[in-house]
Amino acid sequence: MKGLAKYITYRALAAVPTILGLIVVTFVLSHVVPGNPALVVIGPEVNPTELKIAEAEMGLNKPLYLQFFIYLFKLLQGNLGYTYIWDQPVSAEIASRFPVSMELALAALVIAVPIALFLGIGTALRVNKPVDHATRVSSLVAISMPVFWVGTLMIILFYFYLRWLPPSGQLNPLLTAPPHITGMMILDSLFTGNLADLLSSVRHILMPAIALSIGLIALLSRILRSGMLDVLGQDYIRTSAAIGLPRRVIVNKYAFRNALLPAITVSALYAAGLMGGVVLTESVFAWPGLGYYAYISIQNTDYPSIMAVVLISGLLFVVINFLADILYAFVDPRVAL
């Protein structure tokens, strides 16, 4: 275990320069793109003097490197700036929206992982059978469908025609939201025993979560399938077969763990693309999370918010990959020397 602790420390330290780089890039990008933040704050029809005053108030007249250090200093204090669009500190906005997005992402995972495992292992064991071919074709279709299109289709089908599911939002507006405990509606209503809220929030999350999970299911099941096929041909699996170990042990214990390795890596990388998916999904379903926030902020050139969202999604990427590395080390003893 000492080796593992060392490995984790090493990985965590290695993430520090990445995060610093991320902060620099975020800052530079937002100051390089055209558009004047001061203009956004005080509105387009102002005289130059007022603009100068606003710029001075926002520190925009200082040299860039100084602005960066001010930004960094504030960042370390948890101060992400102030959003004039929503009229409150960005950090407050993020704090309330982060769990909402998290809830959606977790719901997508809860749907995607079991289905992907089932499909991946199932098709590997039925290689070149009709089921396998059908799954391959449908994954291909699923991976190529953009999330906003799937989302719209789902709304048309399940809301417009079938009236099964609500098209947008987190909760029936007629209900009162449960008190803020985790910020995740399903969990909060569960904790407070509010059945009406629970039912409504589950019904609301279904469509966006499914829309978000489709790509992950397709990708993960393909990776698992090829990983499984590769492993099942190895000498050690053939030996296990000759030993006469029960098939469930060979497949679920010996082969599965090996097939999991590439799946971990790919899933972590997929997280990079997930933020884009979240922005689209949340916009389509008016899900009041970070993605929706990013969408509105970009529309309104709300710089502090955009920077914050980019920073947070970058951070998330680093953290998820860090977790994936650790998980990998747990699964594969060869990694943590």
Binding site: Y254, R257, V331
Partner: peptide, 9 residues
């Protein structure tokens, strides 16, 4: 020498 033992157990 190469692949007869499962590397993860």
């Amino acid at each position: 020498a190469i692949n007869s033992l499962n590397p993860l157990f």
